[in-house]
């Protein structure tokens, strides 16, 4: 009888322990952090890449442009300095054009994992951009609910 009771208690505890993850997740969910994935200064025209890790939630983009010379655009007569195109692994593009020195930020929610492409277009060869990309991704690659002390 006593052995049966002990076996029963152990069985309950064995069921209980993994289920505790549900409670832990409510109070201490998996830790994420911002991590820099790309940071280059004074880049001219060209194509560059950076990688977004699996399970990254979102990425932020900071583009600082230094425009020395602009070129006229034929159709509208507007000035064109330098442009940056960011393309995700699932072929969604975002374009940022600078007609003068300045900076622009952006954030992509649900950023796709894989290689992202940055294409810088500058017809003058004189203008430069500085690009920084930060990714919000899991803090630990092997995190599990029972490692709450790592949280």
């Amino acid at each position: 009888m006593r052995h049966l009771a002990i076996a029963f208690a152990l069985a309950i505890l064995v069921i209980q322990v993994p289920l505790s993850g549900c409670i832990v997740d409510q109070f201490r969910p998996e830790p994420y952090e911002w991590r820099m994935v790309y940071d280059e200064k004074d880049k001219g025209a060209g194509t560059y890449t950076f990688k977004v890790a699996e399970n990254a939630q979102r990425i932020t983009l900071e583009i600082g442009a230094t425009v020395f010379i602009t070129t006229p655009l034929g159709e509208t007569g507007g000035a064109f300095g330098i442009s940056v195109n960011i393309k995700s692994p699932d072929d969604i593009s975002h374009n940022y054009t600078f007609n003068g020195t300045g900076s622009k930020n952006d954030e992509f929610l649900g950023a796709a994992a894989g290689d992202w492409t940055i294409t810088v277009t500058d017809y003058t060869g004189q203008n430069k951009v500085s690009i920084r990309v930060d990714s919000y991704e899991p803090k630990y690659s092997d995190w599990a609910w029972w490692k709450i002390w790592e949280n």
Binding site: A5, Q16, C22, I23
Partner: peptide
């Protein structure tokens, strides 16, 4: 005492299903 201990153990798995 044994009966109450068993009853207590039986409640434990339910507790993990709670959410705020």
């Amino acid at each position: 005492v044994a009966v109450f201990a068993v009853l207590f153990l039986l409640t434990l798995p339910f507790l993990t299903q709670l959410y705020i």
